[in-house]
Each structure stands twice: as C-alpha cells, then as structure tokens.
Simulated assay, not measured.
Amino acid sequence: MERLLGVLGHPERQLPVVLVAGTNGKSTTARVLARLLEGSGLRVGLYTSPHLHLPHERIVIGDTTITDAELASVLGPAVEHEREGSKPASWFELMTAAAVRWFADQGVDVAVVETGLGGSGDATAALGARVVAVTSVGIDHVEYFGATRWDNAVAEAGAIPVGAAVVLGEPDAAMHPPFAAVGPSSLLITGHDFGVVADSPVAAGRSVSLFTPAATYDEVFLSLLAPWQTASACVALAAAETWLGAAVDDRVVRDVFAATHAPGRFELVHTPGPLVVDGAHNAAAAAALSCGLRERFARSASTVVVGMTGERDPKTFLSALGVRPATRVICTSPRTTRAVPIGALAAAVRAVGVRTVEIEADVGAAVRHAAHHLDGAVGVVTGSLYVAGEALPVARSLAS
C-alpha cells in the first residue's frame, strides 16, 4: 500500500484521516460521523465498504459521489504502475488509494475512512489516522485473525497508529488491553467516557439520550430502527467531538440523527409484509439482528432469505439468528466468487433443524419468493452485504 501511495504522490500526507474500525457497525458509524463533521462546518470525504450497487458509492464528499472520469483519472497512474509490478495491489488497495488521492485533490478538511478486513495489514492502516473509532470486537475473518474475540481485538488494535486518539465502542473490559497497549494519545471508552443513557424504539426510529465528555444530548430522534445502531451513532458522536476538540452543537446532532439513513442495515421495506434487509454476516451481527426483530416486531422472522460469503460458518450464523424448525429458509447466492456454495448452505440450514428449506440461486428471485409467502408476517434477507445489495432494488420495487 505504501508503494501505491508513493506512485500517487503520497496523498495521505496531505489528508487528515479519522479511521473507523471494528467488527460490526463500521459503515453506520462512518456515515453518522461524516455528517456530524459536515454539520460542524467541515468539508468531509467519506470512504466506506463494501458497496451495495456500484463501486463509486464508496467514495463521496457530502452528497457528491466520485464520477467515472474522476475515478479513472486518479486510478490511471496506479493501474499502469501495477501492471509492471511483480506483486500487484489488491482491488481494495487500489480503491483506497484512489479515494485518498481524490479527497486530497478536492481539498477536504478531513476524510472519514472505514477499514476493510482491519488489522495491521489493512490498506487503511497506512493512512496515519489521527483519530480511530473502534465500533465493536467480535469474531470475524477467522482465517486471518483467529477464532477468538481476543485474537480479533489484537488484530483491530494493530491498525491504530501510535499516538492516535482512540474512541472505543466495545463495552467488554476484557477486550480493552490491546487498544491501551498501542499507546494512544487518549482513550475514550463506552460506558465510562461516553455512552447511551436511554434508548427506546419509536415510530420510524429510536428516541435516544447520550453523553460524551463534552455534553449530554437528551431525547434525540434517531431515524434508524435497530438497537445496535444507537451504539454506532454514539461512537460517531464521541469521535466527532474528539476530532473537533469540543462538543457538537445540539442542533447539529438532532438534524444529523433525524436524517441518518443506513442502506442495507436493518432496512425495513413494506412488501406484502414487513421485510427487513440486513447485511449481517457473522454470528454477533446475526444475534443483534434477532434482538432487533424481537424488539421491533415482538417475534422472529417467519421467512429468511440467506446467502453468505467467505469462510464463515453458516450453522453458527443461523443458530445466532434464531431460526426455528418452522422457519421457511430460502438459500441463495450473491454474485461473487466468494459465495458459500448454495448446496453447502442448504445442508447447514437442515443441520440446525429447519424443516422447510428451499433453494433459489438468484437473489432477486429469492426475495420475490419470500415476499409472496409473507402475508403480513415478518421476513428477513441477510447473510452478506452483497446479498443486501442485490435484494434491495427488488424489495423496493415490490413496495412501490
């Protein structure tokens, strides 16, 4: 990554960065954080991953997405250089370098950057972030980080530059030592330095009260539905204050929280019945999704469309989601070479005791099939953000 940045003239040296790391909740945290900084008068670049529909979605300034011409312009020198190299950069490294170069060219005041896999080997670790927000510590990418939460905590801490200010959203104190060990200039910990005082579901969102080192924010409407999204917004608020060195104006917080949208993250679409599209892709996220469904609908999903990627264990994921023998599960496959084979996924569903297991390889067709069976009951599409990205246009068309 350092070689690639050098080819592009080391744009990271011109660009102040806030890094958003952690196992789950990164994109929502990054989106809220960018809007809070914009509302505080800064010009902000936002880099998130993965995209739901087009790669350009990853690279935005305010409401402006990088264009085809701009992306080609910043990528051109890097692609040409990589063609001549013996060890070409990864696609994620190229996109990250392109984002940083474009943000620097556009003169943003700060870039909010979401990590990829995370860890010291992540492309974003080379950007020299001054503030790092860590959303949570769970088990994911076991083929790279290991099979325990401690392994993942050590890996996530590895992406933090020495001397950066750290905002830690993981509540489990047993996971904190790796983050303290990197030598942060400051360390804010959820539940101690910032946190959630009150959080309850309301129509179309949540009513939340939060505290930070600089202020309290009472009875703020957050236009996100799931309980874990309150924690994401709170981490974003603490990180914004850390960057600004002051409290975020109360009106800015209320305006940003009320306008926040997180596509593909507990996104509710009203088809013939309520259909929740959520990119949960590991056991911790599946358990959180299950809790969100029970809170919002007082029941679990009757129909689940699931497709997964990578080395994740479908049985662990499905058990955490809380599928029951009577749940209808439709197995599907996102359009990626990393998709879990659909036959193996169906076998895992049967192994956890589900009686009605169906296979529909095309995600859109699976969504249509699920919506047909809802009849007022709750349905879920989950397992991967790639699945969520393919499902959303179809689900939204059924609602129109």
Results as ranks from 00 to 15, higher is better:
86 S>I: 09
284 A>Q: 14
144 Y>L: 13
364 G>L: 03
184 P>W: 06
73 S>I: 04
98 A>V: 02
331 C>D: 01
92 F>W: 05
46 L>H: 04
46 L>V: 12
120 S>L: 02
232 S>G: 04
176 H>V: 11
333 S>H: 04
164 A>K: 04
350 R>S: 15
255 D>L: 11
386 Y>D: 01
225 L>C: 08
222 L>G: 04
117 L>I: 06
190 T>N: 10
283 A>Y: 04
44 V>T: 07
196 V>H: 04
305 V>T: 03
8 L>G: 11
143 E>W: 08
271 T>L: 13
302 S>N: 08
384 S>T: 06
389 G>Y: 05
187 L>P: 15
35 R>G: 01
344 A>R: 05
48 T>A: 13
130 R>D: 05
102 W>S: 09
13 R>F: 00
289 L>W: 13
241 E>I: 02
229 Q>V: 09
64 T>D: 15
364 G>V: 14
308 M>Y: 00
307 G>A: 05
233 A>S: 13
191 G>T: 04
319 S>C: 12
168 L>N: 01
37 L>Y: 00
193 D>W: 06
62 G>N: 07
254 R>Y: 04
255 D>N: 15
81 H>W: 15
365 A>T: 14
338 R>H: 05
298 A>W: 05
310 G>Y: 01
383 G>E: 03
133 A>I: 12
130 R>E: 11
206 R>K: 00
219 E>Q: 11
279 G>C: 13
390 E>S: 12
109 D>P: 01
26 K>N: 09
179 F>A: 05
131 V>E: 09
357 V>Q: 03
247 A>F: 06
142 V>Y: 01
176 H>P: 10
374 L>V: 07
144 Y>G: 03
282 N>K: 10
109 D>G: 01
189 I>E: 15
35 R>S: 03
129 A>S: 11
282 N>I: 06
210 L>C: 10
52 L>Y: 09
45 G>P: 03
138 G>Q: 03
89 A>M: 05
337 T>G: 13
68 D>A: 11
113 V>L: 02
129 A>N: 10
276 V>N: 07
20 V>Y: 00
32 V>R: 07
74 V>D: 14
134 V>T: 09
62 G>W: 05
187 L>M: 13
294 R>N: 11
192 H>W: 13
79 V>L: 14
348 A>G: 06
389 G>N: 04
52 L>P: 02
198 A>Y: 09
341 P>L: 14
115 T>D: 10
330 I>D: 01
19 L>C: 08
82 E>L: 06
179 F>S: 06
360 E>P: 11
37 L>N: 00
82 E>Q: 14
75 L>D: 11
135 T>P: 04
39 G>F: 00
267 E>Y: 12
71 L>S: 13
